[in-house]
Design a protein around this nucleic acid. Structure first.
Length: 333
DNA sequence: CTTCCACCGGAACCGTGGGAAA
DNA sequence: TTTCCCACGGTTCCGGTGGAAG
């Protein structure tokens, strides 16, 4: 049944993007000066999860790079790089400017001079830019004359107030491209393109796609995870066609898939905190700290735990409710 | 209504370790 | 080699604040 598993994986970059014609045009227009050797505005790309932000950014930049000799690009997810230096290192490697660099022990300035030394215009995609903790880093990047930033983040309305002042002002000054959730019909269409690319023709009934789209509620990442799990399940059972009744069975597996992508980035102590909250579903701050201290051999300080909990919240793995003495940490699902 | 204090989060500080300069 | 520098991952300190208890 599965003819090309890659097409169902989360990182797959399709050859054509559907239902994003407007944003594609917008982004392309903002980046256009680069193809004529001029510099372009920095860009902030926002939208809810599963709206295709990352895919869109990579798609547009890849096309630009293919059409223009003097443009090079790099992509990084700020979530998975804990420090400024590791983020710069990764980006330089991606851009093809750091093959000879080692990952540690080099001052920031050295990396930045690499950027300036390049004859090409550079476009860097920084995914989840709101977790960049060092404001000085973005400022420094802004000052590089031949560097255009394409910053990607979820569209929390509280975003600009929650991040550092200096970061916020950088984000505000960038050209803003906003993505909406996919509609039901758009998502059905996207899923059927993926099914065509990855599954035997005719193996997915139309009404199953519609159900998946319904469950995913505009979130393409979840929709594709559902499709992938449905196909795997059917494959295991030796079925030739995905059945409509399948969805309830595989929904939680698909949601686990999406969650596991995030959990994979956690350190062991972050993981302990997350596991406790997931086990208990809902814990007061006091209880959580007590449980954590009982479970872990060398507990981190309270302040450090709060930082970990912050990052869990940014990953959308947990939710913090209430304030002050009635703070609770909640896991839903 | 007032008081208390658990919790949050900013800021300053610290020990370690690798690299570069002397 | 020794010394200096700097990033990193933490901790310590502390002021603000709003729920909860009195």
């Amino acid at each position: 049944m599965i003819t090309d598993a890659r097409a169902l994986r989360p990182e797959y970059l399709p050859r054509e993007l559907h239902h994003r014609e407007g944003p594609i045009q917008h982004l392309t227009a903002v980046l256009k000066p680069l193809s004529q050797g001029y510099s372009a505005e920095n860009i902030l790309l926002t939208g809810p999860s599963g709206a295709g932000k990352t895919t869109l950014a990579r798609y547009v930049v890849e096309r630009l790079e293919a059409q223009t000799l003097a443009v090079r690009s790099g992509y990084v997810n700020a979530m998975s790089e804990s420090t400024a230096v590791s983020l710069l290192y990764r980006l330089l490697r991606e851009t093809g400017l750091g093959a000879d660099l080692r990952p540690e022990g080099i001052p920031q300035g050295e990396y930045l001079s690499r950027v300036r030394a390049s004859d090409d215009e550079l476009v860097w995609i920084i995914d989840e830019v709101d977790v960049v903790t060092e404001p000085a880093l973005l400022e420094a990047l802004y000052e590089q004359p031949n560097l255009t930033l394409l910053m990607v983040t979820v569209d929390h309305n509280d975003l600009l107030s929650s991040v550092d002042q200096r970061v916020a002002s950088r984000l505000r000054s960038a050209e803003h491209v906003r993505l909406e959730k996919y509609t039901h019909d758009e998502l059905v269409d996207i899923l059927s393109h993926r099914a065509d690319a990855g599954l035997k023709p005719g193996s997915v009934p139309e009404d199953l796609l519609s159900q998946i789209a319904e469950t995913a509620a505009g979130d393409a990442r979840l929709g594709i995870a559902l499709l992938r799990q449905a196909a795997r399940h059917a494959d295991r059972e030796g079925g030739k066609r995905l059945s409509t009744g399948l969805l309830r069975e595989i929904e939680s597996e698909a949601r686990d898939d999406v969650e596991n992508l995030q959990v994979a980035h956690l350190s062991t102590h972050q993981r302990h905190l997350f596991d406790l909250i997931r086990e208990h579903r809902n814990l007061s701050a006091g209880d959580l700290h007590e449980l954590y201290e009982g479970r872990v051999r060398a507990p981190k300080s309270k302040r450090t735990r709060r930082r970990y909990l912050d990052s869990l919240e940014r990953y959308d793995l947990i939710e913090k409710r209430g304030a002050k003495r009635s703070t609770r940490y909640v896991y839903e699902r």
